[in-house]
C-alpha cells in the first residue's frame, strides 16, 4: 500500500466539506433541496473520480516505457540529470 496519508486526507476533507458540511448552510427557500442535492452529488462524483485515479496508481504493475530522448529530457528538466 503506497498511499500518502496527507493527500488522501486533504482531498477527502475538501470534498467532505463540500458534500457534507456545506449542505447544512444552504439558505432556506424553495430550492434548498435541489441545492443540497447538487452539492452532495458533486462532492461524491468528484471525490470518487479522484479516488479511483489515485488508487489505480497506488500500486502500478509496470512503469512507463520511455524513449531515450524522453529520458534524457526528463532527467534534465525534472531533476536528476545524466552526465554523459
Amino acid at each position: 500500500m503506497g498511499a500518502s496519508v496527507v493527500a488522501v486526507l486533504v482531498f477527502t476533507i475538501l470534498w467532505g466539506v463540500v458534500g457534507i458540511v456545506l449542505p447544512f448552510f444552504v439558505p432556506k427557500g424553495p430550492n434548498r433541496g435541489i441545492l443540497q442535492l447538487i452539492l452532495i452529488l458533486t462532492a461524491f462524483t468528484c471525490w470518487s473520480f479522484w479516488l479511483c485515479c489515485y488508487m489505480a496508481q497506488m500500486n502500478p504493475f509496470f512503469g512507463p516505457k520511455l524513449e531515450r530522448k524522453t529520458i534524457l529530457m526528463m532527467a534534465r528538466e525534472w531533476g536528476n540529470p545524466i552526465a554523459p
Partner: peptide
C-alpha cells in the same frame, strides 16, 4: 533505444501523484 522504469525500486516514489494522472504517462510509449 527505450527503457521501462521499474515500479519496484527507486524509480517510483512509492506513492502516487497527488491529484490525477502522473504526467510521466503522457510521455510514455505504453
Amino acid at each position: 533505444p527505450s527503457l521501462q522504469l521499474d515500479p519496484n525500486g527507486t524509480d517510483y516514489l512509492q506513492r502516487p501523484y497527488p491529484i490525477g494522472m502522473d504526467p510521466v504517462w503522457q510521455l510514455s510509449e505504453n
